[in-house]
């Protein structure tokens, strides 16, 4: 529903929700509607969760700190998950290798900063590099399994992640590394303090997410991608080369992981297994936002970032990831279509 001129490319006259990539989603929402009620419910739930955390912690500093940290890292989760959900929406692939692409970008960034490059300038190299790798992986490996049962693609991406993760382990060893951001310091936000690198990662992630959204909504390429997501046969019939779209979409997804990898490089310990953590969270976010829903992924990222931090308050002593999984299982069972999709 972006512009009338784009409509002739889209054979299967889809209504298009908000950057909805999954065909079911397109069918479910015939007109562009913003689900105000659902947004209100989600906001209310988040507010309740924050209030409960305040009651549990008994100090506003703790809660404000948790909310700040949660939202800031949530933006990055959102960017990672946007790439994952894009791949799922268009190629129907549950990409287990997504986190390992992120890890690869982390190590690439580490190498580039060791060579004297500034962290954020490394984006100019890591993003195109991961895009290229995405094209190669899709054309070279995954293209042979398109249209096969879901398990086959899942296993192939699992194989890719095993290879990347362990190649990093083999060549770099298990010693954790870190990238320092010169001039990094704590920035006060309300009662909380957040590192400058964290804020920059958040802002960068939001900017890139916005760019991706514009690309999908406002360009011919984006229209073609959405057309393939809605109906690949129809898209092929109107002259879209679906093989190119598959490759480009997968590459865009890995580029998201690559960008996120560089952005979080100053925040995390750089190990071969760091990526798998992000992978797990990204899956949760994708299901939360609705598989194939790009905007949902971003919102889901923020929610999961919050859930992770507030979970640390609810369940002291347990890993923050545990609360992420609890949210995940609840969403899987109660709203497997995601928060933003009407049940079929």
């Amino acid at each position: 529903m972006t512009s009338a001129s784009d409509q002739d490319h889209v054979a299967a006259g889809n209504g298009g929700g908000v950057a909805a990539l999954d065909p079911d989603e397109v069918r479910a929402s015939p007109a562009r509607t913003v689900p105000w009620l659902r947004i209100a419910v989600i906001v209310a739930l988040v507010v309740v969760a924050i209030v409960l955390a305040y009651v549990r912690a008994g100090s506003s500093v703790v809660v404000v700190q948790a909310v700040t940290t949660g939202i800031l890292i949530g933006g990055v989760y959102g960017l990672v998950a946007m790439g994952l959900t894009l791949i799922f929406g268009v190629l129907d692939i549950v990409n287990f290798a997504h986190g390992s692409f992120l890890a690869l970008a982390l190590f690439l960034t580490f190498g580039l900063t060791q060579a004297g490059l500034h962290v954020y300038l490394a984006l100019a190299i890591s993003v195109p590099a991961m895009f290229l790798l995405g094209v190669l992986v899709q054309r070279g490996i995954l293209a042979g399994a398109m249209g096969k049962p879901l398990e086959n693609q899942l296993l192939i991406t699992l194989g890719i992640s095993l290879i990347i993760e362990n190649a990093l382990l083999l060549f770099f060893g298990a010693n954790p590394r870190s990238v320092a951001l010169s001039g990094d310091r704590g920035v006060p936000i309300f009662e909380a303090v957040a590192n400058l690198s964290r804020i920059l990662a958040f802002v960068g992630a939001l900017l890139l997410a916005g760019l991706l959204y514009l690309l999908l909504q406002r360009t011919r390429l984006g229209t073609a991608i959405r057309a393939v997501a809605a109906n690949d046969t129809g898209a092929q019939l109107v002259g879209i080369d679906t093989r190119v779209i598959y490759a480009v979409t997968f590459a865009l997804g890995t580029a998201c992981a690559g960008a996120a990898g560089t952005l979080v490089a100053p925040l995390v310990t750089i190990e071969p297994t760091t990526g798998s953590l992000f992978n797990i969270v990204a899956f949760v976010v994708v299901v939360l936002g609705g598989m194939g829903n790009v905007v949902g992924a971003l919102v889901g990222g923020l929610i999961i970032g919050l859930a992770e931090q507030l979970g640390g308050i609810y369940l002291p002593g347990q890993s923050p990831l545990l609360s992420v999984f609890i949210v995940f299982v609840l969403v899987l069972f109660l709203r497997p279509q995601g928060l933003f999709r009407r049940s079929a």
């Binding site: 296993l155 699992l158 194989g159 890719i160 290879i163 993760e165 362990n166 382990l169 083999l170 060893g173």
Partner: peptide
């Protein structure tokens, strides 16, 4: 170094599938 065995598993997995 470790990890080579899992790399081989991964390659084997992709080839088999």
């Amino acid at each position: 170094r470790g990890g080579l065995d899992v790399i081989v598993y991964g390659v084997l997995l992709i080839i088999i599938v």
